[in-house]
Simulated assay, not measured.
Amino acid sequence: MSSPLPKRLILIAALAAAALLLALASLLTGPTRFGSGEIAAILAGGGDPVLRAVLLELRLPRALLGLLVGGMLGLGGAVLQGYLRNPLAEPSVLGTSNVAALGAVIALYFGLAQAHPLALPLLAVAGALLGLAPLLLLARRAESPLSLILAGIAVGTLGGAGISLALNLAPNPFAAMEIMSWLMGSLEDRSFEHFWLALPCIAIGATLLLWNARALDALTLGEDAARTLGVDLRALRWRLLAGVAIGVGGAVAVSGAIGFVGLIVPHLLRPLTDRSPSALLLPSALGGAALLSAADIAVRLIPTADSELRLGVLTSLLGVPVFLYHLVRERRLW
């Protein structure tokens, strides 16, 4: 009988390979076709300037962002499901996605996004961080995960109300359409400016979340047992909240609102692990990267009238039936 470690390594290696292959496929997906000779010339530093710009300035940052954003959403979902001990938990349960989206909507509403391309992602990150403050304030007196869920509902509801208000008071239909388009999520027309903005946020967030893997395992025994094992629940909560807010805030800042990745990926991969939270974190990050990269390829291949299908729309359409199927199949194993 094989030990659990090789199985876990095989799973991680397979997911990493899938994410890498899908990222490479993303580079080659689109109306502009590349031959092997043209790709070799571009990688050597030459080639046609137009083709070089398409490959390195448009498709490469999009492929990299697909890996980063998907990985952060998958990791955030696995961490929150482990900490809150709730299989329905995902980053939006703490309101992070809503307040980050509200920051971006403010940039669109007041025309700041047109004034400078980085205004939208910067305000989205700022919104996520500001949303962390009332969350900690509302939940500071209690260590129960239920208090965080209730505080997250309050923060998320406030962010959603702000978005609805901006749509209701939009100065013209074009502003409302721009806001709605961004809220549906997409990686189209992203540049390396967006990549370098999201990278530090996602790196810091992912580090904070992965650092607490063993503490999440201890929590499966109950809060009292975790304290006995030396887990500082208050410090753990601060680190997890900060990690989710910073990481998911950076992801939402460049991609818009993309749902179901953080919910579905841990459910799909949990049966392939020993079901402990720590064993699920890295596979969920890699699985999220692979899933979002595949979805981003699909939106470019599905024929539409004018623009490509929005990424958030596709993940929701795919996520609901997959989640319902997995919920029925695994209902006794939570």
Rank of each mutant, 00 (worst) to 15 (best):
T207F: 15
S186T: 11
A218N: 09
W211Y: 06
W182K: 06
A218R: 02
A166S: 10
G162A: 11
A166K: 04
N212R: 12
A161G: 10
P200A: 08
A203L: 15
T228Y: 13
N212K: 14
E178R: 15
G159H: 01
E223H: 15
A198M: 12
S164E: 09
D217Y: 10
L183G: 03
A226L: 14
P200Q: 12
N168Y: 15
D224V: 08
N212C: 09
C201K: 00
P173M: 12
L208V: 07
W182T: 00
G152T: 05
W182A: 04
S191T: 15
H194S: 02
G159Q: 03
G205Y: 02
E178V: 08
A226D: 11
A203W: 02
P200C: 11
F195H: 10
A218K: 07
A206I: 05
A161Y: 05
L229D: 08
L221R: 09
E223N: 15
D189N: 13
L219T: 05
G230D: 06
F174D: 12
A154S: 13
T228G: 15
T228H: 15
A225F: 12
E178N: 14
S164L: 11
L187Y: 06
G185T: 06
A175E: 12
G185R: 01
T220A: 15
L169F: 10
P173E: 08
P171W: 10
A215F: 02
I163W: 03
G205K: 08
L208M: 07
A213G: 11
P171Q: 14
A166R: 05
A166I: 01
